[in-house]
């Protein structure tokens, strides 16, 4: 069952990601990205990370991507134009990308061979309780720092977005 789920959602994720880079309209890309995120949330659940899965939906799906969709709608961003610039990226990019993917896959399969197999339910470590305990004991300082970061980001966004440009 969980194998089937993995296969289905992995295919969905890859398909959505491909769609993201193939579509020319930003809003199509945004929706593809939401698809990737939702399928990743399912994969997280399979990996026993139920809190992270829900956070993925709430934070990424519900907050970040809504912002994206909003901005796209606000700016009425149209489809992309062709551009003759960035010759280096045009020519050196594809071989580099292929090489990069190959190296990563090779390293994963060769260098880390002794991995567990994933069986749903054998380990549910990521409950809200565990995460909360870790956040408020071992990771307290990063947690507080990141809350300050969020605060600053809010202020920065407000300042940037509210600035009138003449």
């Amino acid at each position: 069952m969980d194998t089937l789920l993995f296969i289905v959602f992995a295919i969905v994720a890859v398909a959505c990601a491909l769609n993201l880079i193939l579509q020319s309209h930003p809003i199509s890309s945004a929706l593809s990205l939401i698809g990737v995120m939702c399928s990743l949330a399912v994969l997280y659940l399979l990996l026993g990370a139920e809190f992270i899965a829900m956070a993925q939906m709430i934070v990424y799906g519900g907050a970040v991507m809504v912002l994206f969709v909003f901005v796209i709608m606000l700016m009425n961003a149209g489809a992309e134009k062709r551009s003759g610039k960035s010759w280096f990226a045009q020519f050196a990019g594809p071989p580099l990308l292929v090489l990069f993917a190959a190296v990563l896959a090779f390293l994963i399969l060769r260098a880390v061979p002794k991995l567990r197999t994933v069986e749903f339910g054998t380990w549910v470590g990521g409950t809200a309780e565990h995460i909360g305990q870790m956040l408020f004991t071992e990771y307290l300082l990063p947690f507080e720092v990141i809350s300050i970061l969020i605060l600053i980001a809010i202020m920065g966004a407000v300042v940037l977005a509210s600035k009138e440009i003449d």
């Binding site: 939401i34 939702c38 139920e50 809190f51 829900m54 519900g62 709608m73 409950t127 809200a128």
Partner: peptide
């Protein structure tokens, strides 16, 4: 287990239908 979060997550996603 995380029912409340699940409801919140679904509610968060359901914005897209309207938008």
């Amino acid at each position: 287990n995380v029912g409340v979060l699940f409801v919140l997550a679904i509610a968060a996603i359901s914005v897209y239908g309207v938008a």
